[in-house]
């Protein structure tokens, strides 16, 4: 596999060389490799570091709101994720892969989805699920069929309801805005009570919630940065947002006394972090144009369905995991290759 091996050239491969040119010291050893000899310079590490940079605005906002505990959650999640990756590398006798930034990104995203008060053992367990169960047992980066942070979040939400009950978790904080979790209020009391959340406040991060998923503006800016740089697939992000918006709008049209409006669903809970950082995860999402649209739109649809008529407060982790399962099927919808001959057509 490696192209870096030197190719030793013994002299007798060149029998046409006149005798006097033989033995003039060693041949130059040239590197032989297959074409192409140019590369656009992209690499996985660059991509992952850019994702981390893009996540910074939202993370910094969370840290400024919740202080040291938020920083602790993020830092501990990243550290744990990288340690689990390292442990798995050692256990499986594979080359160390923490340098590619993939584990750090998984840890960062999982940290961003947790409340600032999450206990250390939940974080350690969550990163274990994300890295070991979600990724490494399938073979590591590129092989995970499910989105690792989403898998971890779903398992944690089901297992430790109290930790992810944001109203309960954040009860000691008063940050100068309404300190109840918007989606929980919606679920418990219906859209009548959500009038206290202004859309502007929700978008600007003035809502209770997880460390890195409340600052809508920061997430949108980071997401647009990733999309423009070509690190995230805009098709999936946009169709996810469209799916959420249209489904919520239809529900709202049908019965506005029972279901909240579309903009509320866009700005509350995990919607924006999912749209720009979670749904377009490489390995677990499709790559062809139409499948990407279906994937995103269906994930959006499922999210609102679960929020509106399901039992969970936020449907993001479950909708994404469900669509991850559909990914291999979806990606079979692909354009016909040019020149392909269809037999028996």
């Amino acid at each position: 596999m490696s192209s870096e091996k030197n190719v030793a050239v013994p002299h007798d491969l060149f029998p046409w060389k006149p005798a006097q040119e033989m033995g003039r010291g060693p041949e130059k050893k040239l590197v032989v490799a297959h074409a192409p000899y140019w590369h656009d310079g992209s690499k996985i590490a660059t991509k992952n570091y850019n994702i981390m940079i893009a996540a910074l605005p939202a993370v910094l906002m969370g840290i400024s709101q919740y202080g040291a505990p938020a920083l602790g959650v993020i830092a501990f999640a990243m550290a744990c994720a990288m340690i689990w990756e390292l442990v798995m590398n050692l256990a499986m006798g594979k080359p160390f892969s923490i340098g590619d930034g993939s584990a750090a990104v998984t840890g960062l995203l999982l940290g961003m989805l947790m409340p600032a008060t999450a206990p250390w053992w939940v974080i350690a367990l969550g990163t274990f699920i994300a890295i070991v169960v979600g990724k490494q047992i399938f073979g590591g980066i590129g092989f995970n069929p499910l989105n690792p942070p989403m898998l971890a979040l779903a398992m944690l939400v089901i297992s430790f309801k109290g930790v992810f009950d944001f109203n309960e978790a954040l009860r000691h904080y008063d940050l100068g805005f309404v300190m109840t979790y918007p989606l929980a209020d919606l679920k418990a009391f219906g859209p009548g009570v959500i009038g206290k959340f202004s859309l502007g406040d929700l978008f600007m991060g003035k809502q209770a919630g997880a460390v890195g998923s409340t600052f809508g503006l920061g997430l949108v800016v980071g997401g647009l940065y990733l999309i423009l740089r070509g690190y995230m697939r805009w098709e999936i992000s946009l169709s996810f947002l469209a799916g959420v918006f249209i489904t919520a709008w239809l529900f709202n049209m049908a019965d506005s006394a029972k279901y909240a409006g579309p903009m509320f669903h866009l700005f509350a809970g995990y919607t924006l972090i999912a749209a720009f950082f979670l749904v377009p995860e490489d390995s677990s999402s499709p790559v062809n144009f139409i499948p990407m649209l279906i994937f995103g739109a269906c994930a959006g649809l499922m999210t609102v369905l679960i929020r509106n008529i399901g039992m969970y407060v936020d449907g993001v982790p479950f909708s994404i995991l469900l669509m991850n399962l559909a990914n291999p099927l979806l990606d079979r919808i692909r354009p016909k290759a040019i020149g392909k001959v269809v037999k028996n057509a």
Binding site: L30, V31, H34, A35, P36, Y37, W38
Partner: peptide, 18 residues
């Protein structure tokens, strides 16, 4: 030493050893 000597162009050429 360790350079590449390519017959053809950078996208489709063939690196050679001498």
């Amino acid at each position: 030493d360790r350079d590449r000597l390519i017959l053809g162009g950078p996208m489709r050429g063939a690196a050679t050893y001498s």
